[in-house]
């Protein structure tokens, strides 16, 4: 049995606390302790991005992030992206561009795209491709994903 620690953090805008094993990863905490199933397990080793969430200003693979490291931080998941009944502009763009097929990777993809939009608003399409490189999608071929993110970020949708 691993040692447990109490942490306090902000989860999708609400203060939360949890008593977590020190070796618990953030993904497992979100899914198993807070029933937030948006972030997905798909590889468990940071290679696919399906578990991407935003911690403070960073997008992280929650499967590789210790839950205890979120103490005092602000964690945002796909469930916390929209503040109203309406979809967040990034979610809207993914829907409108037909970028969602099976959709399993999409919570991670949308969080990564939101992170890029928030932190690097002037990204070119090539920059976007680099920014989304860590998020694997097996359905879409990424074209509609890039169209959606470009649209949401209002960047030029030109392929180089």
């Amino acid at each position: 049995m691993s040692c447990k620690v109490e942490i306090k953090f902000t989860l999708n805008g609400r203060p939360e606390k949890a008593i977590v094993p020190v070796d618990l990863n953030l993904l497992a905490m979100l899914r198993d302790m807070f029933d937030l199933k948006g972030a997905k397990y798909a590889c468990g080793e940071g290679e696919c991005g399906a578990c991407t969430v935003i911690v403070d200003k960073l997008s992280v693979n929650s499967c590789l992030t210790f839950a205890v490291d979120c103490d005092g931080r602000e964690v945002r998941t796909v469930e916390g992206l929209r503040a109203t009944d309406k979809l967040h502009p990034m979610q809207r763009a993914f829907v409108d561009h037909g970028a969602i097929q099976c959709g399993f990777c999409m919570p991670g993809m949308i969080m990564q795209a939101t992170h890029l939009s928030d932190t690097s608003p002037g990204l070119t399409r090539d920059g976007l491709k680099r920014g989304l490189e860590g998020n694997v999608c097996r359905c879409t071929g990424y074209t509609k994903v890039l169209d959606a993110v470009s649209d949401a970020m209002n960047t030029e949708g030109v392929d180089q």
């Binding site: 199933k37 948006g38 397990y41 469930e79 979610q91 829907v95 037909g98 959709g103 399993f104």
Partner: peptide, 21 residues
């Protein structure tokens, strides 16, 4: 016409429960 999949809004907001969930 051009129509998004009807289930895509639920998938975009993380509401969809896949079998894995």
């Amino acid at each position: 016409g051009r129509f998004p999949k009807p289930d895509s809004p639920d998938k975009a907001v993380g509401r969809t429960r896949f079998i894995n969930d």
